[in-house]
Design a binder for these strands. Sequence first.
DNA 1: AATATTTGTGTATTATAATAAACAATTTAA
DNA 2: TTAAATTGTTTATTATAATACACAAATATT
Lengths: 87, 87
Amino acid sequence: MIGVITIKDVKLQLGELCKQKRQIYEMSQEDLAVALDLSRYTIQKFENGKNATLDTVLKIVNHFDLLNNLYLALKDIENTNDINSLY
Amino acid sequence: MIGVITIKDVKLQLGELCKQKRQIYEMSQEDLAVALDLSRYTIQKFENGKNATLDTVLKIVNHFDLLNNLYLALKDIENTNDINSLY
DNA sequence: AATATTTGTGTATTATAATAAACAATTTAA
DNA sequence: TTAAATTGTTTATTATAATACACAAATATT
């Protein structure tokens, strides 16, 4: 298999997702920061794939109405019993 | 609609997921902590729905081979253009 | 029942995410 | 092309996640 996904990849992808959604809603980093009661620097770092806290991530996810999706995805994973259903 | 999902709900669900997967693999909190080079206290707090860092979450997700799933889910969300496809 | 293992909880310390402010670099609008 | 807005980066400070103990409570194991 080519291209195993790394933790860094996921952090970069999360950052991209934030940036993309933010731009769809025509918000600046500053706008988003104010809306979520976070500093612009926190948004800035997150969008560039740096580490963050779960609260920060979930605030952002929630702001773009994706919290329910995430919750259901987690429920799904929990009910998917095991290791790589490849059979 | 009844029961809007909150950030706290998602953190609790993440903790549950960790606990469940860990038990499937017959690991103690200590085992998992050692495997991921984290303290048991960090695992302990995470499983009980406390705040954590993204790195901690992704280390855990990765250990249970769910990183790829998560990445694909994020890609999916990124390509799902907009607000509640309810139409 | 007694012992061993695991989990929950407390305190103190360290590492680092988050904040705040300023300024440069870049992008967008006039 | 200039001005305005946005984004990137730095430094210093504060808040808090993570660590490293220890010990009690709860769950298995014998």
